[in-house]
Design a protein around this nucleic acid. Sequence first.
DNA 1: TTCAACCACTT
DNA 2: ACCCTTGGTTGAA
Length: 785
Amino acid sequence: MQKITAWILDVYPDETGMVIWLIDKTGRHFRTHHHWQPTLHLQVAPPDERAFAALIRQYSNHLNIKNDRKYDVFHKWQKILTIKLSSPLILDRISRQIQKNMIHSLYWQGNLDPAQMYLYENGLFCLAYCEFHLDNNNEITKIILKDDREATEFAMPPLKTINIKTAGRKTNPKHALLNDLEIEYEGQTIVLEKDEPRQMLETLDTILKNYDPDIIFSRYGDSYIFPRLDKFCQQARFPLSLNRDTGKNTSFGREHTYFTYGKIVHRAGIASLFGRLHIDQRNSFLYRESNLEGIIELARLSSIPVQKMARSSIGTAMSSMEYVVAYKNDIIIPTAKQEPEDFKSGEAHLLSDKGGLVFMPNVGFHENVSEIDFASMYPTIMVKFNISPETINCDCCPDAPTVPEIGYRICQKQKGIIPETLAPILKKRAYYKELQKKAEANNDIATYNKYYLRQNALKWILVTCFGYLGYKNARFGKIDAHESVTAYGREILLQAKDIAESEGHEFLHAIVDSLWLKHESGHHHVRHNGEFCEIRLQNLCDRISNETKIPISLEGNYKWICFVPSKMDSKIGAANRYYGCFENDTLKIRGIEARRHDTPPLINDFQLDLLAQMSKHKNVKAIQKNLPKYWQQFEDLLHNLFDGEIDVEDLVISKNLSRDPDSFAVETHTAIAAKEMLGRGMKVGAGDQVQYIITDAESEDRTSRVRCFGHMDADWAYDAKKYGELLIRSFTSLFSCFGYDDEYMLKWYKDWINKNYENLHRHKRLELSHGPKQMEGRLLPQRQN
DNA sequence: TTCAACCACTT
DNA sequence: ACCCTTGGTTGAA
């Protein structure tokens, strides 16, 4: 027998169990194997008995079935069949077959990834430090975990990394011809030339064999580099050593598009390696947000293997963390959500259907305002009030306290699966934030970054876990739990408002988890009375935190803040559109043009420039005094626009395609630009970004309304009038409360055009002062073949 | 000119 | 493989 103490690098199934790659303190790696059989649970309904018999017949040698009992999520003792499969490789097939042919039956643990299932069952995770007992065939006989996924300090193995990317272009090269490849490792860069494919493969192979990296980072490795390399290898019959496991070939997953945070995201198919990790930095939300630190943090918490974690959505990580808890508590996981929404009376529905509480702010400018924010309000509510699908209206606590307004009971006896999942995450994040602060104070940038990245990854779990509660496909989701959270949220916000008012603060505005309070008039500057204010606010926050049990803290004191009026009704504010300036002259901007990614650079820069100037003013009077100056800047820019002096790249509008170009019902600018690109042989689809210039917004001929950026040639010019309107809109967003509202501005605009550009025909195209710039990198190249 | 459907985006 | 709202545009009535 042999003992190795090492980290788990990667896990994947084979015929008889799991292949487990280890890496030790010195960076040595080992391929080991652990015999393992996956388990499913089933409760066969009478109509499905024939289908079940057929399944047993078909897989007679592969299924080991016994009668069993298990608790389900609702703590019901279920009489079930436990089915052991002979090999993890048939798990997917059998799981699908049960789901398809046995629709009346109850079925648990279906559609789980075998590697994750193995890790859940053994309480393990990738990058866990363990002691492994091996026999002479490298077969694992015992694993002793010497690590804890909830630990905030954990050791990491020494990982050798290498970077592969295409030379030159920064854009997605999926349409492009093959480019040179750049390989970076140990501080050196090697360029592999595209003209010598054989040479390219041989050099890369040598590097892989000699340097033997643990992680390959790439840009567009999933969609481009790895598929091309694979094709080359096949053509040249060259066995490239991408995989450490010599028996395996690179696996290419299916590409897919999905909806998240209100937009379609395109995810290229995963190119995953065996025994070595490939992370495509451009196909990983998590990498972009929180680097390898965040990927590893979540891989440890969720038991999702690192390569898959890198490409997973936050929702997937959240689900997997719930499964970890379920396995730990020996609770079986339903294959699909089965619990229908509880019956509700009309009235209850009306009350509970509301989301977060939002007030209507008094529009316009306010001075001497402080903002206080609840930290992670919704997840904290879930943990503090034990809100989980199975804790709502449980059978065991008929006299339990109820949720405000909607009256659901919440279980007092059993801790819910969601609170149990979230509690350690909240705790861990708070701890990381503390360490981050400490490192900042010590000017220790490396440590600061490490903890910033980790807490940021956890933040994403916390901001999405609430939405996931009500998501109809989530296995542990239930809309009632969702509603309970917002009900508590509303009550807590109102409670905070009452406390603030009782302490003599003037309530100004509140959105879900933030409150804006005004200080009594008489102190023109918070600074003037600063210290007194700080203490009063600190006391207020302490009192609210104590009474509501949700921590709240001071976000900052505003010199001035402006709540932008709604376009629908200028009397009331659009709840989430505001901008303000803190005492230290930093700005907070929400909802207005400069915050939107589809605002062209010209407009964006103009608005931000105005705001930067305004941030120097200490009160509203000073802003008002400078209005003529701002107006002049606005009018000058408008003249520039009409005189054709603006570079086209400052007018580019970028939008995400919500669907494939041909399936748009309305010919929006986005749809027109996408179709133009399609016509030029470029591959654009849902989730891709299109960039275009408005050339003639009012044209009868739809195709002339916009041009996709990159194909603007000298025959085309931008539509100054239209961009003028966008410019005006960005101006009114800032100054409508001074009388520069839409109505006034649009009338002024009409007169201004008549006066200054009366010879400008409505559809006249302007000459460009400089030809369109073809910017390297922003230009989408023609697709090959 | 009006308005419903559609689309993109933010919190 | 998430909730809903606001604001703007399109194109037919």
